[in-house]
Design a protein around this nucleic acid. Structure first.
Lengths: 325, 325
DNA sequence: CCAAGCTGAGATAACGTTATCTCGAAAGGT
DNA sequence: ACCTTTCGAGATAACGTTATCTCAGCTTGG
C-alpha cells in the first residue's frame, strides 16, 4: 500500500479511500491510484483491515462432518451470503476435543459469530469465550448448562406424528429403532417414543431399541422387533442412516412392514415403496440460526432464545402399509 | 495484552513469551502472567498474530457444495490436521462468480494455500493472485489455461475398465448416460466412452447420452438406449447422481440390465442387485492435494505437477448381469 | 578478582490497515 | 473584497501482535 501511494504520488490514506470506494477522491487521483494498484499487483490484506476495523465479516460454522449431507449448512451459507457475511466451515467429526479446538480457533480469529452443532454434554470451555463477547448459536442440539441461543427441530412432535399416523393406519405394535441415547436428538426421540407407547397403554417390551449405529446391532433389533408372539407391524427409525440400515435388513419384508424414517433424504424416493418420513425444515433452521446470530452480534444484550422449528410428516407409501392380519 | 502486562507487572513482550510458551521466562513470572490472563479473560488475537507473522496456518477449501457428500474434502481436512494446519471451507455452488468471490476472499485473508474444485473454463482472475504468490491446488478438475498444480482421477481409465468389464461379461451394446459435457469430468468420461466404442468397432447410435442431470432427460435417455432394434444390454453412468436417476427409471428392469456407475456411494450396497462402480481413490486425492500444497507453500518455485490418481472397479453384482438372450 | 559469557526481561519498531484531525484551496454569500 | 463554508487530500495514531536489539545482573574461568 505504501508502494502504491508512492507510485501514484498520493498519501496512504488516499489509496485506502480508493480501495474502499470513498467518493471524496478526485477522478484523476482515482485513475492514478487504480493504475498503480494494477501495476504493482497490490492485494489488500484483510487481516490488517479486520484488525483495524474490529469486525471480520466472517461467521464460522462448526459442523459434525463437512463431507456429509447437511442441508442446514446450505441454508446457513445462503442466509449469511444474503447478509453479506462469509461463512467458513470446519468439521468437528463428533469429537469433543476437536470441537473445542475448532471453536477456539475461530474465536482467536475473531469471527463475528459461530454456528455450532454441539457435541457431548460438557461445554464449559465456552464460558470464558461467551464472557469475552462471543456470539454463538447452537443448531440441532442445545448447549447443555449454558445460556446460549439455540435452534432445534421439534423432535418429540415428529415422533408423535409418526406414531399417530401409524396408529391411524391400524397399527398397535410399533417398534422404534434409534441411535445412541447419549446423543441429544436420539435421547429426545426415544423419550418421545416411550411417551407415545405409555399414552397408548401398551407395554414397551421389544419395541424400543437404541444404541450405536452398527449393522449387526440393527439386524438384531429388526429381528427382535419382528419376532416373538406379538411382532411389530410397523417400525419408526431414529435417523436417515438408520432407515437405510433397517431397510437393508428388512430385505423382502420391506413391503409388509410399515416404516417411517426420521429425516428426509434423496434415498426416500428411490426405494420401493417410497419412504414416508418425518422431515425437518432445514431451510428454516439455517436461516433462523443466521437471524439469531445477527441479532446477537448487533446487540449482545439480546435475550437468549431457544427456537423450536416444526417438523412435517411426508407420506410416500412405506408408512401407509396396513398391519399384516 | 497491555492490561495483562500491567496487571502482572511485566513487559508486553513477556506476556507474549508466556502465551507462546517461550522457555526463557522465569517460573514466577509465568505464574503471575497466567493468573493475570485468567483474571482479565484475555484472548489472543490471531489476526494481529498472523499479520505480524506473515503466515496464517490456514488453508482454504473452495468446493462445489459443502452440504453434499464429498469424501475428498474429508481427506483434505484430515491430512491438513495432521500437518497442524486449519482448513476452512466454503461452497462455490457451481457458480463461477461465486467461486471467484470465495477464492478472492481467501486470498485477501492471506490463507497460506487454497484447495479448489474449479468451475468453468475461465480462471483468468487467478493470474494476479498466482503472481502475488498464491499457493493453489486444483482437485477433480484442472484449471484450464493456467499452470497450476492439479490432482485428478483417471476418468478415462475408469470408463475403459467399466467398458472392458461389460464386454468380458458378453455385452456388446453398451450405453453411456452422462452429465453435461461442459463439465470437465463429464467431457473426459464421455470422450473415453466414445473411444471405447470406436475401438470396439461399434456404431455410437443411441448409445451415448449427455446433458444436464434432469429427471425427464434421463428417463428419455434410458428409454432410447433400451428400445429400437438393437437395444443396449448394459448401461454405464457418468456419476453417482446419474446412477440414482437411471435406477429410478429402470424400475423393475434393473435386474435385467447390467449397470456400472461412476463414483461409489453408500447407496451402492443398499440397492438390489448391489451396484458395481468405478470408485475414485478419494483419500489419495485429498492427501496428495495437501502434500502438493504444502510443498508449494514451502517452496513456491516447486515445479508445477498434475497427478492422476488411479480408479478402481468394484464388482458387486449389477455390472455382472449377463446380456439378455 | 576481573573480563567474558550467559540469561532473563524490557523498549522499540514493525506488520498493513483505517479513523480522526488538520489544512489549504476553491466556492459561495453579503 | 472579505468572511464563511465546503471539499479534497495529507499526517498521524491507533488496532494487537512478535522480532530485534539492548541491558542489567549473574556465572564462570584464568
Amino acid at each position: 500500500m505504501v508502494d502504491v501511494a508512492r507510485e501514484a504520488g498520493v498519501a496512504l490514506r488516499t489509496v485506502s479511500r480508493v480501495v474502499n470506494q470513498d467518493p471524496t477522491v478526485g477522478p484523476d487521483l482515482v485513475q492514478r491510484v487504480r493504475a498503480a494498484i494494477a501495476d504493482l499487483g497490490y492485494r489488500p490484506d484483510e487481516r490488517a483491515r479486520h484488525l483495524r476495523l474490529g469486525v471480520t465479516g466472517t461467521l464460522g460454522a462448526a459442523v459434525r462432518q463437512l463431507s456429509h449431507v447437511n442441508p442446514v449448512l446450505r441454508a446457513v451459507e445462503r442466509a449469511a451470503r444474503a447478509a453479506d457475511l462469509m461463512v467458513l466451515a470446519a468439521s468437528t467429526e463428533d469429537d469433543e476435543s476437536l470441537e473445542r479446538h475448532v471453536v477456539e480457533s475461530m474465536c482467536r480469529r475473531r469471527f463475528d459469530g459461530i454456528v455450532l452443532e454441539p457435541i457431548g454434554d460438557d461445554h464449559r470451555y465456552l464460558v470464558p469465550e461467551l464472557a469475552a463477547g462471543l456470539s454463538l448459536v447452537a443448531v440441532d442440539r442445545p448447549v447443555l448448562g449454558l445460556d446460549v441461543d439455540c435452534v432445534l427441530s421439534d423432535n418429540r412432535s415428529g415422533i408423535e406424528k409418526a406414531y399417530r399416523h401409524l396408529v391411524r393406519h391400524g397399527h398397535d405394535r410399533i417398534a422404534y429403532i434409534g441411535d445412541d441415547e447419549r446423543i441429544y436428538t436420539a435421547r429426545e426421540r426415544a423419550m418421545a417414543f416411550r411417551g407415545c407407547v405409555a399414552a397408548h397403554g401398551g407395554p414397551l417390551g421389544t419395541m424400543l431399541h437404541t444404541g450405536e449405529v452398527e449393522s449387526g446391532r440393527i439386524r438384531e433389533a429388526v429381528r427382535a422387533a419382528l419376532s416373538g408372539s406379538a411382532p411389530a407391524t410397523a417400525i419408526v427409525t431414529g435417523n436417515a442412516q438408520l432407515s437405510v440400515e433397517v431397510l437393508r435388513h428388512l430385505g423382502a419384508d420391506a413391503v409388509d412392514v410399515a416404516l417411517i424414517g426420521f429425516d428426509d433424504s434423496e434415498l426416500a424416493t428411490l426405494l420401493r415403496p417410497d419412504l414416508t418420513v418425518v422431515a425437518q425444515d432445514t431451510d428454516a433452521i439455517g436461516s433462523t440460526a443466521i437471524d439469531m446470530l445477527r441479532a446477537r452480534i448487533a446487540d449482545p444484550a439480546t435475550e437468549v432464545r431457544t427456537v423450536t422449528v416444526p417438523v412435517e410428516l411426508i407420506t410416500r407409501g412405506s408408512g401407509e402399509i396396513p398391519p399384516a392380519p
